[in-house]
Design a protein around this nucleic acid. Sequence first.
DNA 1: TCTAACAGACCGACCAGTCTGTTTAAAATA
DNA 2: TATTTTAAACAGACTGGTCGGTCTGTTAGA
Lengths: 191, 191
Amino acid sequence: MNQKFRREDILEKATELFACKGYTALGINEILVATGMSKGAFYNAFKSKEQLFIEVLDFYATHGLNRIARKLKTDQRKAIKRIEDFYSEMIDMQLAVNNQGCLINSAMAEMGSINTSITQATCKHYNDIIRGLKPTVVEAQKQGDLNASIDSERLAELIHSSFYGILNRQKGLAETDSGKELIRILLTSLN
Amino acid sequence: MNQKFRREDILEKATELFACKGYTALGINEILVATGMSKGAFYNAFKSKEQLFIEVLDFYATHGLNRIARKLKTDQRKAIKRIEDFYSEMIDMQLAVNNQGCLINSAMAEMGSINTSITQATCKHYNDIIRGLKPTVVEAQKQGDLNASIDSERLAELIHSSFYGILNRQKGLAETDSGKELIRILLTSLN
DNA sequence: TCTAACAGACCGACCAGTCTGTTTAAAATA
DNA sequence: TATTTTAAACAGACTGGTCGGTCTGTTAGA
C-alpha cells in the first residue's frame, strides 16, 4: 500500500507542537489532528510517544546542526562576529513563534529528572551542538577575539549553555533586545 | 475545626514534587499521597492546581531570596568570591536530589509558552532574584573584580541566566565539577 | 496471496475538579 | 453559663473528559 504520510512531515509538525507545549502536555491526539493521521497510522509508524519524541529531538538537532554549519561557515566576517550574529538571529527565531525557546533546552528542563532515555538523547545532541560550535570558537581564539587560554570546547560549552539560559529568561519578557545585549556582553567579555 | 495540615508543610512537599516532575506531569493525587491530605482538604485550601503552583513558586522564590541574602552578605571574603561560592554551592544543591534543577528555570521552560499567569509569576520572581544579586555585583565592581563599565543589573541578569543555562546543561551529566568550572570561567572573564 | 499502511472503535488508567456529607471549634443566643 | 447555630476543615465517592495505547478490521500494492 502506498504511504499516505511522509515521516519527515510528521516529524516536522510534531517538532513544532512539542516545542510549543512540551512533552507531557502534548497529547498524541493533537498530533493526529495536526497531521491528519489516524491512531492506526500513527502507531504503525511510531512505537510510542516516547520514541516519537526521541526521533523528534534527533530531527530537531540535525536541522540545528545544519543551521550552525551554514551560519558559522567562514566568510568575510570575523569568527566572533559570525558567532554573535548567529545567536542574535537565534534569539529572534526561537522566540518568534509563541516564545517557544529551544527544544533541546526545554526537553532537558522538563525531562531531565523524569526520563533517562530522553535525557540521554537530549544530552547527546547538546554535545553535538557544542562540537559544532567549537571550530568557530577556535577560529575566534586565533583571531584574538576569544580568550585563547581557555579550552575551546569548554568555551563553546559556556557560550552555548549561557545562551540557553538567556533564551529561557527572555520567555518572560516581551522583547528580544535585552537578550541580544546579554549575548553581546558575554561574547565581548570572553576575550 | 482545628487545622490538621499546615499550609507551609503542604507547600514544602509540593515544591519538592513540582521541582522533580514539573507542572504537567505531577498529578494532584501524588501531592495528596505525599502529604496525607484528602481531596476535600486540598480543594478547601487551594483553588486549583494552577493556584497551588503559583503559591509554590512564591514559596520557593522567597526561600531562594533568603538564601541569597544569607550567602552573599558581607564577610571577610571578597564579593566576587562570595558570588562564586554561592553558585558553586547552588550547583551541588540543585542537582543533588534527582537532578532537579531550579524550579524558576524549569517553570519558565515548561510553562513559558503555555500559561501566562504562571509565566508572569515566574518572571516576577526571576526579576526579584536578579535584584537580590545586584548589590553584591555592585560591590564586586567597586573592588575591580567585575567590569564596572557594564550596568550592574544587566551584569547580574547575565550571570544568573547563564547560571541557569549551565545548571540545566549539567542535568545530562553525571558530575557537577564541569558546571562549577564554567561558572568560574564566566565570573573571571566578566572583569 | 501476503503484508505494510491505514482507519477508527475501544480500553483501562488517570486527570483535575465537584459534591455530599461529617466533624468540631468558635460565635451567637438564651 | 448552657445551649444552639454556623461555618471552616476535612473525608472520600464520584464525574466527565482525556490520556497513551491496543485491537479488529479494510485497503491496496508488491
